[in-house]
Structures are given as C-alpha cells and as structure tokens.
C-alpha cells in the first residue's frame, strides 16, 4: 500500500442504473497537483464529489491521510458514519465549485470567516485577521466588505478559494473552477491556482484548461466511461491525447 495522502480504491457509483464510476483507483501524493480530464459525462465531477462524500459511492474506499472517508469498516461492509463524523472529516477537504456558491447574504470576509468561527471555533478576531490575509493572497485586499453580487465572477471565485483555504485543508478539490467565467476572467483564477500549487497545496482539479494542466499538473488523469483511461505526467498524457482525439476533450 502506498503512503499517498489521498487513496481511492475500486470506487464505483451508478445513478439510476447508469454506471458513472466503474472501479476507479487513484493516488494523490501530498503536495502534488492532479488534473482530471475527460469528455463530459465521463464521471470527473462525480469522482470529485465522492472524495468529500457529497455523493455516496456504491462501493470502494476513499482514504485521506489514512482515514476512511464517510464510512467505517463493519466486517465485509462499509457502514456510513454519522452525519456529525462526516462533517468533521469534510473540514480537512476544501472544495471550490463551478458556480462559486458564495453565501449571498454575507460579505466576502464573512464568507471566509463563517466556517472557521462556526465550525472550528476559532476566535472571531483571529479568524478575521487570517481571512483578510487570505483575501489579500487571492488579490482581493480592500474588497472584504463587498457582497458577492458586487463582485465579478473571477473575484467571487477567488473569494470562494479563500473561503476553502480558511479551513486549512489537507486537500483542495476544484470542480471546473473556471468554466462559469468570462474568458477574460479565467486568467486571474488560474493565477491563484498556480500560486497554490507553488505553495505546495495538494490539489485535485477538474478542468478543461489544457495549458494550465500542462504547466501546473504533476499528474494528468483521463477518465472515460467511468474508468481511468490513462494517467501520468502531462507531457505524456496530453500529447497522446492531442494525437488521438483531442476535440472530444472540450
């Protein structure tokens, strides 16, 4: 058994009889960047959403830092954990969504501070100074008091990244973080992702941004029909892809 931070073994999931994930094995080393690519419907997002138990798999295991996510072993079976236990496990796994999903009734800073104060019990003053630092890190110093609706899509997504980072996660999941953005705003979000990668954040990113994958990914994983078709360094996998069937990617 490897000592990878994230280990996925035999992950299987079907929606209403349609198999979406079919025995996926995946290792993500601490401090590495893994980019998931594949045609739509190949199961990328479902795989990502299983990792923090937003979707419940039908079979297979996910461990983060040696801890089984969402389940405990019960003889031959995996028994789902109590809601409270799963919530506690999710604190170590940050997630960024395609549609940002900032809390609309809270300012940017309140969005970032909400979970550290409410879930981890960090003192508000401490959480706020950390929140300001995180917003500054994603290039949003001075916009702490803006409501999400007053921010551009790119700014909202950067606040969403800061919000996830505020929990000090061991692992960050990005579900097509730039797909809902105007082309002109994609760059500023990718720049934040690059910065995180350089800083050693462990990341799993679902994206169609080929250039980003080539530049930042340590491993590119290609999903097809719920299975891992290929995986390896971007130079190998992406070049192969462009020869074979590049157009189907996007």
């Amino acid at each position: 058994m490897s000592d990878a931070l994230l280990q996925v073994r035999g992950l299987t999931k079907a929606f209403a009889g349609t198999t979406v994930l079919d025995g996926v094995d995946l290792d993500v080393e601490a401090g590495s960047v893994t980019v998931l690519v594949g045609p739509s419907g190949s199961g990328k997002s479902t795989l990502l959403r299983c990792l923090n138990h937003l979707e419940t798999p039908d079979a297979g295991t996910i461990t983060v830092d040696g801890e089984l996510i969402g389940y405990r072993r019960d003889g031959e079976r995996l028994r789902e954990l109590a809601q409270r236990r799963i919530a506690a496990q999710r604190r170590a796994i940050g997630m960024v969504f395609q549609q940002f999903q900032l809390f609309g009734h809270m300012t940017a800073l309140a969005n970032v501070v909400e979970a550290p104060v409410g879930v981890l019990g960090v003192a508000r003053s401490e959480a706020e100074s950390r929140g300001r630092a995180l917003l500054a890190r994603v290039g949003l110093a001075g916009r702490e008091d803006a409501y999400p609706r007053q921010l551009s899509g790119g700014q909202q997504q950067r606040v969403a990244i800061a919000r996830a980072l505020a929990m000090d996660p061991q692992l960050m999941l990005f579900d097509e973080p730039t797909s809902a953005l105007d082309p002109a705003l994609v760059g500023e979000v990718l720049e934040v992702l690059r910065d995180l990668a350089r800083g050693g954040t462990t990341m799993v990113v679902v994206t169609h941004e080929r250039a980003f994958a080539r530049e930042v990914a340590d491993t590119v994983v290609v999903l097809e029909h719920g299975r891992i078709a290929r995986s390896g360094p971007p130079s190998e996998v992406l070049d192969q892809l462009s020869e074979r069937r590049a157009p189907s990617l996007d």
Partner: peptide, 20 residues
Amino acid sequence: GQAEAATALGMTRARVLRRI
C-alpha cells in the same frame, strides 16, 4: 448549491439551515 457549499465546509445540517 448554497447548502452543498456549506456542507463541504464541514457544517452540520442544522447549522447549514440556520446560518446559510
């Protein structure tokens, strides 16, 4: 998606309902 984002931050269901 709002409830989902809050859930992903580790909030319990009651907290998601009350705060978000």
